[in-house]
Simulated scan of single mutants.
Amino acid sequence: MRVAVSDTNTELLELIDAAESGEEVIVTGKSGTEIRLVPVEAPRFISGILKGKVPPGGPDFLEPMSEEELRDWEGA
């Protein structure tokens, strides 16, 4: 589908629907520039991406800090 940029104001929702359904939508500007409307895929979240990359026995963030760690943290 090819559409002049001047026609996109009234047809924008239809053009978006067409692009989302896989139709090729090209908007032609006054200078002849062509722009293709394509849906952008959302990044997928991958659960467990760091599994096996964090060494076991790391710091336990739920345990209280030692006095020395607390002094370092507070900048004393």
Rank of each mutant, 00 (worst) to 15 (best):
M1L: 15
M1G: 07
R2Y: 07
V3L: 00
A4N: 15
V5Y: 03
S6W: 06
S6P: 02
D7K: 07
D7A: 13
D7G: 06
N9Q: 15
N9H: 15
L12R: 08
L12Y: 07
L13K: 04
E14N: 11
L15C: 02
L15P: 00
D17Y: 01
A18T: 01
E20Y: 08
E20F: 06
E20P: 01
G22I: 08
E24I: 09
E24D: 13
I26L: 13
I26C: 05
V27M: 01
S31G: 10
T33C: 05
I35H: 09
R36I: 04
E41N: 09
A42K: 15
P43W: 04
P43R: 03
P43N: 04
G48M: 07
G48A: 11
I49F: 11
L50D: 12
L50K: 13
K51P: 02
G52W: 01
K53E: 11
V54A: 08
V54Q: 03
V54R: 09
P55S: 11
P55H: 04
P56L: 07
P56R: 04
P56E: 04
G57F: 04
G57P: 00
G57E: 03
G58E: 06
P59S: 08
D60T: 09
D60L: 05
F61S: 09
L62K: 13
E63K: 13
P64A: 11
P64N: 08
M65Q: 13
E67R: 15
E68A: 14
E69W: 04
E69P: 02
E69R: 12
R71F: 04
